[in-house]
Amino acid sequence: MTFVAAACGAPPPAERFEDDRPLNQAGWDEVQRAAGELLPLAAAELRYCSPTPRSRATGDALGYAPLVQLALRDCDMGRWRGLTLGEAMAREPEAVDFWLADPRATPHGGESLLAFISRVGGWLDTRPADDGGRIVAVAEPSVIRAALVYALKAPPSSYWNIDVRPLSTTTVSGRAGRWNLRFDGIPAQRSRT
Protein backbone atom coordinates (compact mmCIF):
# COMPACT_ATOMS: atom_id res chain seq x y z
CA MET A 1 0.00 0.00 0.00
CA THR A 2 1.31 3.40 -0.96
CA PHE A 3 0.20 6.41 1.02
CA VAL A 4 0.22 9.77 -0.77
CA ALA A 5 0.10 12.80 1.51
CA ALA A 6 -2.59 15.29 0.54
CA ALA A 7 -1.44 18.56 -0.98
CA CYS A 8 -1.40 21.71 1.15
CA GLY A 9 -4.50 23.56 2.16
CA ALA A 10 -2.65 26.17 4.23
CA PRO A 11 0.92 27.14 5.07
CA PRO A 12 2.34 25.03 7.97
CA PRO A 13 1.94 27.65 10.72
CA ALA A 14 -1.74 28.02 9.75
CA GLU A 15 -2.53 24.28 9.75
CA ARG A 16 -5.55 23.58 11.89
CA PHE A 17 -6.77 20.52 13.76
CA GLU A 18 -9.27 18.60 11.62
CA ASP A 19 -8.84 21.16 8.85
CA ASP A 20 -11.70 20.84 6.36
CA ARG A 21 -10.57 23.66 4.09
CA PRO A 22 -10.13 22.78 0.40
CA LEU A 23 -6.84 22.95 -1.45
CA ASN A 24 -5.51 26.46 -1.86
CA GLN A 25 -3.93 27.63 -5.11
CA ALA A 26 -0.47 26.62 -3.92
CA GLY A 27 -1.83 23.11 -3.25
CA TRP A 28 -3.30 22.85 -6.74
CA ASP A 29 -0.01 24.04 -8.21
CA GLU A 30 1.89 21.41 -6.17
CA VAL A 31 -0.40 18.65 -7.47
CA GLN A 32 0.19 19.76 -11.05
CA ARG A 33 3.99 19.76 -10.58
CA ALA A 34 3.95 16.32 -8.92
CA ALA A 35 1.43 14.71 -11.25
CA GLY A 36 4.00 13.18 -13.60
CA GLU A 37 5.46 11.05 -10.81
CA LEU A 38 2.22 10.33 -8.97
CA LEU A 39 -0.11 9.56 -11.90
CA PRO A 40 1.17 5.97 -12.31
CA LEU A 41 -0.34 5.15 -8.89
CA ALA A 42 -3.76 5.57 -10.54
CA ALA A 43 -3.22 2.05 -11.92
CA ALA A 44 -3.60 0.63 -8.39
CA GLU A 45 -6.40 -1.91 -8.09
CA LEU A 46 -7.74 -0.23 -4.93
CA ARG A 47 -7.69 3.55 -4.46
CA TYR A 48 -8.77 5.20 -1.21
CA CYS A 49 -8.67 8.61 0.47
CA SER A 50 -9.35 10.40 3.72
CA PRO A 51 -12.71 12.19 3.82
CA THR A 52 -11.13 15.68 3.92
CA PRO A 53 -11.73 17.99 0.95
CA ARG A 54 -8.00 18.31 0.23
CA SER A 55 -7.42 14.53 0.29
CA ARG A 56 -10.36 13.94 -2.05
CA ALA A 57 -9.26 16.79 -4.34
CA THR A 58 -5.67 15.54 -4.42
CA GLY A 59 -6.80 12.02 -5.33
CA ASP A 60 -9.22 13.27 -7.97
CA ALA A 61 -6.66 15.64 -9.50
CA LEU A 62 -4.24 12.73 -9.82
CA GLY A 63 -6.87 10.60 -11.58
CA TYR A 64 -7.23 8.10 -8.74
CA ALA A 65 -11.02 8.40 -8.33
CA PRO A 66 -10.51 7.29 -4.71
CA LEU A 67 -13.12 5.75 -2.44
CA VAL A 68 -13.54 7.73 0.79
CA GLN A 69 -12.67 5.77 3.92
CA LEU A 70 -14.06 7.17 7.17
CA ALA A 71 -11.44 5.24 9.16
CA LEU A 72 -8.83 7.46 7.50
CA ARG A 73 -10.30 10.64 8.96
CA ASP A 74 -8.10 12.88 11.06
CA CYS A 75 -7.98 12.58 14.84
CA ASP A 76 -11.15 13.87 16.52
CA MET A 77 -9.89 16.97 18.31
CA GLY A 78 -13.09 17.79 20.16
CA ARG A 79 -13.30 21.45 21.17
CA TRP A 80 -9.90 22.15 19.56
CA ARG A 81 -11.27 21.36 16.10
CA GLY A 82 -10.41 24.21 13.73
CA LEU A 83 -7.72 25.67 16.00
CA THR A 84 -3.99 25.82 15.30
CA LEU A 85 -1.70 24.28 17.89
CA GLY A 86 -0.68 27.81 18.91
CA GLU A 87 -4.31 28.85 19.42
CA ALA A 88 -5.04 25.76 21.53
CA MET A 89 -1.88 26.42 23.55
CA ALA A 90 -2.90 30.05 24.16
CA ARG A 91 -6.33 28.95 25.42
CA GLU A 92 -5.40 25.83 27.37
CA PRO A 93 -1.63 25.52 27.82
CA GLU A 94 -1.74 22.86 30.55
CA ALA A 95 -4.24 20.76 28.59
CA VAL A 96 -2.08 20.90 25.45
CA ASP A 97 1.01 19.92 27.42
CA PHE A 98 -0.90 16.99 28.94
CA TRP A 99 -2.15 15.90 25.51
CA LEU A 100 1.33 16.06 23.98
CA ALA A 101 2.82 14.06 26.87
CA ASP A 102 0.21 11.31 27.32
CA PRO A 103 -1.03 9.36 24.26
CA ARG A 104 -4.15 8.30 26.21
CA ALA A 105 -5.11 11.89 27.09
CA THR A 106 -8.24 13.55 25.72
CA PRO A 107 -8.30 16.98 27.36
CA HIS A 108 -9.98 18.38 24.23
CA GLY A 109 -12.92 16.00 24.65
CA GLY A 110 -12.17 14.12 21.43
CA GLU A 111 -10.07 11.10 20.52
CA SER A 112 -6.77 10.17 22.16
CA LEU A 113 -3.63 9.80 20.08
CA LEU A 114 -3.55 6.11 21.01
CA ALA A 115 -7.15 5.59 19.84
CA PHE A 116 -6.38 7.47 16.60
CA ILE A 117 -3.32 5.31 15.88
CA SER A 118 -5.33 2.16 16.66
CA ARG A 119 -8.21 3.21 14.39
CA VAL A 120 -5.93 3.90 11.43
CA GLY A 121 -3.92 0.73 12.14
CA GLY A 122 -7.11 -1.34 12.31
CA TRP A 123 -8.05 -0.07 8.85
CA LEU A 124 -4.56 -0.91 7.56
CA ASP A 125 -4.83 -4.44 8.94
CA THR A 126 -8.07 -5.06 7.02
CA ARG A 127 -6.55 -4.24 3.61
CA PRO A 128 -5.71 -7.12 1.27
CA ALA A 129 -2.01 -7.89 1.43
CA ASP A 130 0.54 -10.14 -0.22
CA ASP A 131 -1.76 -10.85 -3.17
CA GLY A 132 0.25 -8.77 -5.62
CA GLY A 133 -2.41 -6.07 -5.88
CA ARG A 134 -1.46 -2.42 -5.53
CA ILE A 135 -3.30 -0.09 -3.17
CA VAL A 136 -3.00 3.68 -2.95
CA ALA A 137 -4.45 5.89 -0.22
CA VAL A 138 -4.40 9.69 -0.25
CA ALA A 139 -4.51 10.90 3.32
CA GLU A 140 -3.71 13.78 5.60
CA PRO A 141 -0.13 13.75 6.92
CA SER A 142 -1.43 13.07 10.44
CA VAL A 143 -3.19 9.91 9.25
CA ILE A 144 -0.04 8.69 7.51
CA ARG A 145 2.01 9.34 10.65
CA ALA A 146 -0.50 7.28 12.65
CA ALA A 147 -0.29 4.44 10.08
CA LEU A 148 3.51 4.46 10.24
CA VAL A 149 3.60 4.36 14.05
CA TYR A 150 1.20 1.42 13.92
CA ALA A 151 3.04 -0.42 11.13
CA LEU A 152 6.38 -0.09 12.90
CA LYS A 153 4.92 -0.99 16.30
CA ALA A 154 6.65 2.17 17.52
CA PRO A 155 5.75 3.86 20.80
CA PRO A 156 2.91 6.39 20.33
CA SER A 157 5.26 9.21 21.35
CA SER A 158 7.18 8.66 18.09
CA TYR A 159 4.16 10.10 16.25
CA TRP A 160 5.48 13.58 17.05
CA ASN A 161 8.85 12.78 15.43
CA ILE A 162 7.56 11.80 11.98
CA ASP A 163 7.42 14.51 9.33
CA VAL A 164 5.18 13.74 6.36
CA ARG A 165 5.44 16.35 3.61
CA PRO A 166 2.60 17.17 1.21
CA LEU A 167 2.54 14.86 -1.81
CA SER A 168 5.25 12.61 -0.41
CA THR A 169 4.74 8.87 -0.77
CA THR A 170 5.38 6.13 1.73
CA THR A 171 4.80 2.44 1.10
CA VAL A 172 4.02 -0.29 3.58
CA SER A 173 3.94 -3.91 2.52
CA GLY A 174 3.20 -7.14 4.29
CA ARG A 175 0.12 -8.10 6.24
CA ALA A 176 -1.66 -7.47 9.51
CA GLY A 177 0.81 -7.55 12.37
CA ARG A 178 3.86 -7.61 10.10
CA TRP A 179 4.40 -4.50 8.04
CA ASN A 180 7.53 -3.31 6.26
CA LEU A 181 8.14 0.34 5.49
CA ARG A 182 9.65 2.03 2.44
CA PHE A 183 10.06 5.79 2.15
CA ASP A 184 9.49 6.75 -1.44
CA GLY A 185 10.04 10.48 -1.00
CA ILE A 186 8.71 13.66 -2.44
CA PRO A 187 8.29 13.93 -6.22
CA ALA A 188 11.39 15.57 -7.70
CA GLN A 189 9.45 17.92 -9.95
CA ARG A 190 8.11 19.84 -6.97
CA SER A 191 9.91 22.89 -5.72
CA ARG A 192 9.11 24.41 -2.35
CA THR A 193 8.39 28.13 -2.40
Rank of each mutant, 00 (worst) to 15 (best):
M1K: 00
M1Y: 08
T2S: 04
T2E: 03
F3D: 02
V4H: 00
A5K: 07
A6L: 06
A7Y: 05
A7E: 06
A10M: 04
A10D: 05
A14K: 14
E18R: 11
R21S: 09
R21M: 02
N24W: 00
N24V: 10
Q25Y: 04
Q25W: 08
W28H: 15
W28C: 12
W28D: 05
E30F: 11
V31S: 03
V31T: 07
Q32P: 04
A35M: 08
G36I: 00
G36W: 02
E37L: 04
L38K: 01
L39W: 14
L39A: 15
L41Y: 15
A44F: 05
E45R: 15
E45S: 15
L46A: 11
R47K: 15
R47H: 06
R47T: 07
Y48R: 08
C49T: 06
P51D: 04
R54S: 02
S55P: 01
S55E: 00
R56A: 09
A57D: 09
A57V: 10
G59K: 07
D60M: 08
G63Y: 03
G63C: 08
L67E: 14
L67W: 09
V68Q: 03
A71E: 14
L72Q: 01
R73M: 01
D74S: 00
C75V: 08
C75P: 03
G82V: 10
L83A: 06
L83S: 07
T84R: 14
T84S: 05
L85T: 04
E87H: 13
A88S: 09
M89V: 13
A90I: 08
A90S: 14
E94A: 15
D97H: 14
D97M: 15
L100C: 12
D102W: 13
D102F: 10
P103L: 00
R104G: 08
R104V: 10
A105F: 14
T106V: 11
P107L: 13
P107D: 02
P107V: 12
H108D: 15
G109A: 08
E111H: 09
S112C: 03
L113T: 05
L113D: 01
A115Y: 02
A115E: 13
A115L: 08
F116I: 05
S118V: 07
S118I: 01
S118D: 12
V120S: 05
G121F: 05
L124E: 01
L124I: 05
D125T: 12
D125Y: 13
T126G: 11
T126A: 11
P128Y: 09
P128C: 12
D130C: 15
G132Y: 11
R134H: 14
A137Y: 07
E140C: 03
P141Y: 03
V143I: 07
V143Q: 03
R145W: 03
A147C: 08
V149Y: 01
Y150I: 00
Y150C: 02
A151V: 08
A154S: 15
A154F: 08
P155K: 13
S157C: 09
S158Y: 13
R165E: 10
P166Y: 09
P166T: 12
T169K: 10
T170P: 01
T171K: 11
V172R: 05
S173Q: 02
S173A: 13
S173R: 06
G174K: 06
G177E: 07
R178F: 02
L181H: 12
D184W: 02
G185K: 12
I186M: 15
I186P: 00
P187W: 09
A188N: 10
S191G: 14
R192Y: 10
T193L: 13
T193D: 12
